[in-house]
Design a binder for these strands. Sequence first.
DNA 1: ATTCAATTGCGTTATAGTGACGCAATGTAC
DNA 2: GTACATTGCGTCACTATAACGCAATTGAAT
Lengths: 251, 251
Amino acid sequence: MLKNILDNKESYQPGLSIDCVIFGFHDNQLKVLLIKTKYSDKWALPGGFVPVDEDIDEAAVTVLHGRTGLRGIFLRQFSTFGAAKRCSVDVSNTVLEFYGIPLDEGKWYASRFVTVGYYALVDFLQTVPQPEGNNDIVEWIDHNIVPELVLDHKEILDKALETLRMELNLMPVGYNLLPEKFTIPELQKLYETILGRKLDRRNFLRKITAIGILRKLDEKKSNVAHKAPNLYSFDKEKYEEVLKNGLTQGW
Amino acid sequence: MLKNILDNKESYQPGLSIDCVIFGFHDNQLKVLLIKTKYSDKWALPGGFVPVDEDIDEAAVTVLHGRTGLRGIFLRQFSTFGAAKRCSVDVSNTVLEFYGIPLDEGKWYASRFVTVGYYALVDFLQTVPQPEGNNDIVEWIDHNIVPELVLDHKEILDKALETLRMELNLMPVGYNLLPEKFTIPELQKLYETILGRKLDRRNFLRKITAIGILRKLDEKKSNVAHKAPNLYSFDKEKYEEVLKNGLTQGW
DNA sequence: ATTCAATTGCGTTATAGTGACGCAATGTAC
DNA sequence: GTACATTGCGTCACTATAACGCAATTGAAT
């Protein structure tokens, strides 16, 4: 795989990569899709390179699709990381050796890479994590217990979450992270998990319904321990409208 | 100059550039520092390349310092632009011809460049626009009447202003854009100009003083047409504190 | 010198938004 | 039935915000 890229390195933007922080929500946990390659004991963000004739946004879509099988998902650039020391020759050489690629052939790969960070919000249940060439493991990991990551990937992840928190004040969230039918408490948990703090049930209900993006269904959640909460779905049209025009309130 | 870079192209990150949107405030106008090269009839944002052994943030500082003579100024990355078509071979070749550089030697320069956008806030009066090698004109231009720019520089400028508008809700602004002593109406004009709309005088005064970053001086502005407004200066300590912790209110 | 017009600085008021909390209704467990 | 956790709706006090009033100050006009 890397071999393919090196053999066609003229087709790729040199020294530039894409890293995606893919968020999912399940079991009341905010999860991040991470990969672990066989040649390293650390986890990493899913990433890729940029074909010279492709927009970087397109390249990010390709990465997202390659790892989740999903398209048409919320995906947003949030920052670019270009520290001088952000490429470790050791790491690169380990990878090259693993693939049996001579070091001089892999010079392209071993130089300093500037990476553009994107974050995505996807539906956990519709996602099929896809390892690439059976050489690595792709897994959802609770954002609270992410292990040590390669290079500066932890910093990238933190920045993505920080950005998501900020943008929560500017846009609605949930359409891409929750299943079609959900309850208000579930949506609240999502917000609480992203923000990292508790919200008042009653105030949350008031504010979230006031936005006008929810459609109350004539149906209650079944098999629950206590009073059955009502089910809701997003009003796609209103949701898109608010996503475009932005919110005016904050959490 | 470009020749120097091409001769040492191994020392620069290939296919990557920095573009800076440098804002200044003067005569109640928000101005942008633009350059016009002799070989083009369009204006452009000041930009530069990234040495392989330098952080991209450092490279941005270098660009800012090179064009304004300033250091230690508010400078922030806001977005990265990587459309596939964002480099015009025509433009590149024109430049190469101007410098008398053979096209094959300039291949490095003529390929697609991804550019990282930074915006800066500087003190207009302390800025000495510095042309580079007498080959170009550097000038402050009112952001309302910027002429046509090369490539996608207009898009970059617009995005910078949009970001600045957003961040106005999160941080105080003015310390880098105004002289040491200023009046509340001047500060208000700055805010109005950035936001592109009028604010109520009396509400503005109340909110801006409530933040606690202003120090009222025992001095009034002289030589003014009407009632002399009081002079203020920023309380550097409080200002830095708010800059770090962020604002909670919006405009 | 007096008046005028523009501007500043401080205030008031009505309304909307926010945080904190009360309480009845609903459903499970025993 | 009783106990208990959770949901859904409502209340209340407080704060923030927008809209506007008005006296004081100053240079310019008369």
